[in-house]
Simulated scan of single mutants.
Amino acid sequence: MLENYLKKINILTDKEIEEIKSVGKKSNLKKADYFIREGETCKDVAFVLSGTLRSYYVSDKGEEITYCITFPNNFMTAYSSFITELSTEENIQAITNVELITIPKSIIDVLANQSPNWVRFLRLMAEKQYIELEKRIFQLQKNNASQRYSDLLKNQPEYIEKIPLQYLASYLGVSQRHLSRIRREISF
């Protein structure tokens, strides 16, 4: 899966892909386990082979706010902590059992110093993250909850099918009760 993903991007050579495969370490998270918790420093990036993760923070009212969901065939990390090497304010938790390939930042830094292809790849991943973040901000600010749910239903139906209601509601910025009402209205 990782190899196919990297080949599809068409930046890295076969040798560079083999290098990353050789240093990547498979690991598993059970449902409700954490990849990282608030206050820790993120030292790895992970490629999700199977399962689903959620990224969330705890509001000043003590509420868990889910802001990102990661499905298989995607990279995931506590990005700002990964870049700055400072502690993170987010939690990344398994919604289901998850199988990952983790790659330490120290190795990614070495690879980036050895090849401009890795620098290009890392820039592309950063740009992709920025675009997703911008889309999410615009959606939260421009659309009401029904529009956000309809957009999710149209563009990312796997979210609707595979994410527990409380996390989906948090992701959409509504209460579970409000989400249930929206779902009833849209299904008619």
Rank of each mutant, 00 (worst) to 15 (best):
R37Y: 03
K61V: 02
S22H: 15
V119G: 07
K25A: 10
I160E: 13
S81C: 06
I95D: 12
I17A: 06
V23I: 06
Q141L: 14
S187T: 02
Y167H: 14
K162A: 00
S81Y: 09
Y57C: 12
S55A: 07
Q141D: 10
A78Q: 03
P157K: 03
P104T: 01
V110M: 01
S27V: 04
S146L: 11
N74T: 09
V45K: 09
E90H: 08
N91Q: 04
E38F: 10
K30Q: 13
K135V: 08
E40P: 00
L172N: 11
I36R: 09
I36L: 15
E161F: 15
Q129C: 15
N117D: 04
V45C: 14
A112W: 05
Q176E: 08
S115H: 14
I92E: 03
R181G: 02
M76W: 01
W118S: 01
I103P: 12
E64C: 08
I137E: 08
Q114V: 02
T77Q: 09
S150F: 01
M1D: 12
S170K: 15
V98L: 10
A112P: 00
A126K: 02
K154T: 05
T52A: 02
F188Q: 15
T41D: 10
P164C: 02
I160G: 08
G51Q: 05
L152Y: 10
L152P: 00
E132N: 14
L124D: 14
L172P: 10
V48G: 13
R54N: 12
E161M: 15
T41G: 13
N113K: 07
P157S: 11
R177C: 07
L153F: 13
K8M: 04
Q93A: 03
S80V: 07
H178W: 06
S80Y: 08
I20Y: 02
K31F: 13
K15R: 02
S187F: 04
N155A: 06
R181V: 07
L133W: 01
I36A: 11
